[in-house]
Amino acid sequence: MSWFVFALIFLAQPDHALDCFQRANAAYEAGRFDEAVRLYDSTLLGAQSPTVYYNRGNAHFRANRVGLAIADYLRAWRLAPRDPDINFNLNFARQFRVDRNPNPEGIWSRFVRAIFTVFNPPVTRVITALIFFLSALFLAGYFLRHRSALLIIGLVLTVLFLFGLGSVWYWRGATDRNLAVVVVPEAIVRAGPGSEYREIAAVHDGLEVKIIEHRPEWVLIQIPGGLGGWIERSALERVFQ
């Protein structure tokens, strides 16, 4: 009896997620995007998955919510950084923003991003730790046996380890908890935390900003161009967590 209950708990959980997922896809295909979003939400309670974020991003995009779509594509990208569909839709959705990024990504930063985001953050951390351990192993072996082959392998592994550290560091910046997107059609950035302060700029759905400081109703943000100001908290959604 108990094994049965055990099996039920173990099997029922993913099946529920899968069921939600399929119903959400059906709602999406039928054009009921808001319903699809709700079902993807419940799918995410049962399973962390890049596919669900990706599909939910599509549903948001179809419902004209570019900001929420970009946030979901970024979450999916964090889990599956090499996935071509996710990258395509992320870039596609970014084109639909009203506010253009004043300093678009150059070749160099694209290259850095490409080489540092081969694996998703936890895999990167595991591989980096393994490489460190292996390089320590080979170097310790060299100190005992004094074979130059051990030294060469150890040094190569050390270089790889430094590269891995770079990747871990890059991911830390790219998935910063303070990254947020604007999720309302238009929001006014002000000089202080209150609607009585002077208006500085208008930002629009989908703009990616960085949160610098919090107040209960207002947050201080930095816009990619370097401009900063206070914005109502409800106009933003954090991308990660």
Binding site: T43, S49, F92, P122, V126, F132
Partner: peptide, 24 residues
């Protein structure tokens, strides 16, 4: 945009593995 996916791909437990890997 590219179309939604049919196959549910779950993330494996790399987060826990990354937590354990720190002892390396």
């Amino acid at each position: 945009i590219r179309h939604i996916r049919d196959r549910l791909v779950r993330s494996r437990g790399w987060e826990q593995a990354a937590g354990l890997a720190v002892i390396l």
